[in-house]
Structure formats: C-alpha cells, structure tokens
Amino acid sequence: MLALIYFIILAVIALGAATCVLLSRHPLYGALSLVVSMVSLAGIYGLLGSPFLGVVQVMVYAGAIMMLVTFVIMVLNGARDSRTPMFDKVSLFIIPAVLVLAALVGVALVRAPLGFDAATIRGSVAVTSETLFNVAQGGPGYFILFEVLGLLLLSAMVAAVLMAKKRLGSVDSENVEEKH
C-alpha cells in the first residue's frame, strides 16, 4: 500500500518532468527537467527492489551525464536567451514518431507477461553481478559482451579525440576562428 502511494507520487513526478522536457523552450530547463525525471525514476527502481540500479541511475545519469549535458548546453549557444520555437518543420516527423513509439511501448507492456513480484526480485549488487558475470552458471553470460562493449566505447572515445585533434589542427578551423 505504502509502496503504491510512493510509486504513484514518483511516477507523476517522472511523467510530469518528462513532459516538461518536451515542452520547455529553453534547453537548460529541458535538461533540468530530465534530471528530475531521472531522479524519480531512480526512486522507482528503488521501490522495485533494485537499489543498485537506482543509485547508478542517480550517479551516472542524473549526476555525471546530465552534468555534462548542462555543461555543453551552457558552453554552446544554447545558453543564450534565444528561445527556440516549440514547433517547426522537424516536428512534423518527430510528433508521429513519438506517438508511434509510445503506442509500441504501450502495446508491448500490456501484452508482455509481467509476472514479476517486487518482493522476490532483488536487484542488489550481488544479484546484478551474478547475472552479468557468473561464468559457472549457464555459459558465458554477458561477460564477453560486457568486455566487447568496453572496447567499443574505448574505440569510440579514441576516434572522437582523433577527430577533435584533426579539427583543431586544420586550416579550416583556424579560418573559422578568425571569422568570429
């Protein structure tokens, strides 16, 4: 009962904040709403018995990534007070896409056998790590996948750094600098 009340409160906050992300005209307000949404999502994870996931959500998404996003918004021109229009030509494609996606997810959620009991599933650190990395039980698990993912991210990072360095050194970028 108590859990249900909490869930409703958190869900309302999360949905409201998510709507704010769509409706806010300034990118920074959007980012802040996203932070609120993510924190309340973390609360819902906690309610579902997986505090680890919730805390990681707060730490990585709400903390680090959104901080980075705010940083970028502030550094780029988005921090100026020019307000972007709520609807433009791109919205013609995006609004139907959002609606279709929402319908898809809704159908999937309704049709899926949600046979899960919040009391039994514990997404604690031990359970999470066992699901991911326990090689003894049922094959390699997600171990190799995890490592490959790490490599992929690393290579992406190296590529990004390389591209940034190239842009910095080129004549093109210098001209642009001068123009400003």
Binding site: V58, S124, A126
Partner: peptide, 20 residues
C-alpha cells in the same frame, strides 16, 4: 543499504547542480 557508498556519491554529484 547494499549500495551505501554509491548513494553518497550520487548525492554529492547532484549537489554540484546547485553551483552550476
């Protein structure tokens, strides 16, 4: 909680939003 330290880190990374 199982995730004690992580919770603390989550909070402290949130607190930087105040300054930003």
């Amino acid at each position: 909680s199982d995730v004690g330290v992580l919770l603390l880190f989550g909070f402290s990374s949130l607190s930087a939003f105040g300054a930003v």
